Simulated assay, not measured.
Amino acid sequence: MKSKGVLSSSFNMSLGFIPVIIAILLSEFITQDVAIYIGTIVGVVYSIYNVSYQPIKIPNFILYLSTVILTLLTLATFISGSYIPPRALPLTLEVSIFIPMMILFQHKRRFINYFITKKTSCTRRFFTQGAESSIVAARFALILGVIHFIVISIGILYSEGQLTKEATAIFYKYLPPTVFILAIILNQIGIRYFNKLMSHVEYVPVVDTKGNVIGKSLAVEALSYKNTYINPVIRIAISVKGRVFLCNRSKKCSLDRDRVDYPMECYLHFNETLASAVKRVVKQTFPDVEGLHPTFNAFYHFENKLTNRLVYLFLLEIDDDSILCSPHFKEGKLWGFQQIEQNLNRNFFGECFEKEYEHLKSIIDIRERYKVS
C-alpha cells in the first residue's frame, strides 16, 4: 500500500511553541502584559483543539507546557512589582520553558513508561506516541537553546560584559523566537526525512476488541511495543481428512518460539481486507498450488505479556497432503485429536492453538461427518 507518510504534522510537537512565539512577537508592538494574555488565550484555545477536535488524538505535551508557563506569567501580572524586566519577555519565556523541558528530557524513559503502564490499550498508543514525539521536539529545542546560551556566553566574554545595543537586541530579543521557530522547522524536516526513509515499510492497523480500526502503526512496532495496543493477526489451520497439520514455530518468533503450531500466521496489513490477506499468506506458503480457499471460522481477542492481538482463525481443508512435504515446514506432520490432547497444557503447543483447539476440533468433526453423510 502506498502511504502519504508514516508521520503527519500532528507529530511535530514543536508546534506547541506557537503561543509563545505569538506572545514574543506581540511584545514588540504592545505591552508585555497584553502580549502574555493573548499568548495564553492562544495556548488555551490550541490545547482545547488538540484535546477535543484534532482528527489524530495525539496529545501535545510541549503545547501544554507552554500554556502552563504562559498562564503562570498571566497570574504574575496581577502581582504588584516588576515580575519581568522591561523587554526581557523573549528570554524569560525561553528560560522558563526550557528548564522544565530539560527536566522532562532527563526523565524521558520514566515519562514514556508512565503512559505505557497507566493508560488503557485504546488510548495508550496515542499518549505513548505523544510522549515520544514530545521528547524528540524537546531534543531539537534544547540543542538550539544550548547553542543560544553558548553564543550569549561568547558574546559576553568577548565584549568583557559590555554588550553593544545591537548585540543585546540580537541575543535577548531576536534569538529567543528564532530558537522556537527553528525548532518547529527542524522538527518538520526530521518528520519528512523519517517519512522518506520509511516510505517502503509496512504498517499494520490498530483495532479495538471488535475489530474496528482506530489507527495504524509500523509493523515493527507490533513487536517492539508488545501488548501496548491491539493488532489483527490471521491464523490458518490446515486439516487433512480429520487431522491437523502442525509444525515447529521459528526460533525468531516473538511468541511461542519453537513450540508446535499452525504453519500459517501473519499480521493483517493496513488497508488490507481479510480476503486479500488470506490470499497473500496462502500464495506465500504454497506458491505453485492453485485452488486453495481457507474458510473463516472465528475471531477472538488474545493478550499476554508479549502480544495483544485480535485473532482471525481460518481453516484450510486439503485432500492431497503431498503439498505439505516441503522444507518450508519445520518438522511438520499431521496430528490426530488424541495425539494433540495427550500434549495439551504441557507448554508444547502455542498458547493461541490451545485456546482455539476445542473450537477447531468441533468444526473439523462436523465437516468430516458432513462429508461422510
Rank of each mutant, 00 (worst) to 15 (best):
E290L: 12
E290W: 04
E290H: 13
E290S: 13
G291Q: 07
G291E: 06
L292M: 07
H293T: 15
H293D: 14
H293L: 11
P294K: 05
P294Q: 03
T295G: 03
T295S: 06
T295H: 10
T295P: 00
T295I: 13
F296P: 07
F296K: 07
F296E: 08
N297D: 11
N297G: 05
A298S: 14
A298L: 10
A298F: 12
A298N: 15
F299P: 06
F299L: 11
Y300T: 12
Y300L: 01
Y300D: 12
H301K: 06
H301Y: 14
H301M: 02
H301G: 06
F302G: 01
F302K: 00
F302A: 01
E303A: 04
E303F: 04
E303N: 11
E303M: 12
E303W: 04
N304H: 01
N304S: 02
N304T: 05
N304D: 13
N304Y: 03
K305S: 10
K305P: 00
K305R: 13
L306E: 13
L306N: 12
L306G: 10
T307G: 06
N308G: 09
N308L: 04
N308D: 15
N308M: 01
R309P: 09
L310V: 09
L310I: 06
L310S: 07
L310A: 08
L310K: 10
L310W: 00
L310N: 09
V311R: 04
V311D: 00
V311N: 05
V311C: 07
Y312A: 02
Y312F: 14
L313Y: 15
L313T: 15
L313P: 05
L313W: 15
F314A: 03
F314R: 09
F314I: 08
F314G: 02
L315Y: 08
L315I: 14
L316W: 10
L316S: 05
L316Y: 08
L316G: 02
E317T: 12
E317K: 11
E317A: 00
E317D: 11
E317I: 07
I318H: 03
I318E: 08
I318A: 05
I318Y: 06
D319F: 04
D319G: 05
D319S: 11
D319H: 10
D319L: 09
D320Y: 01
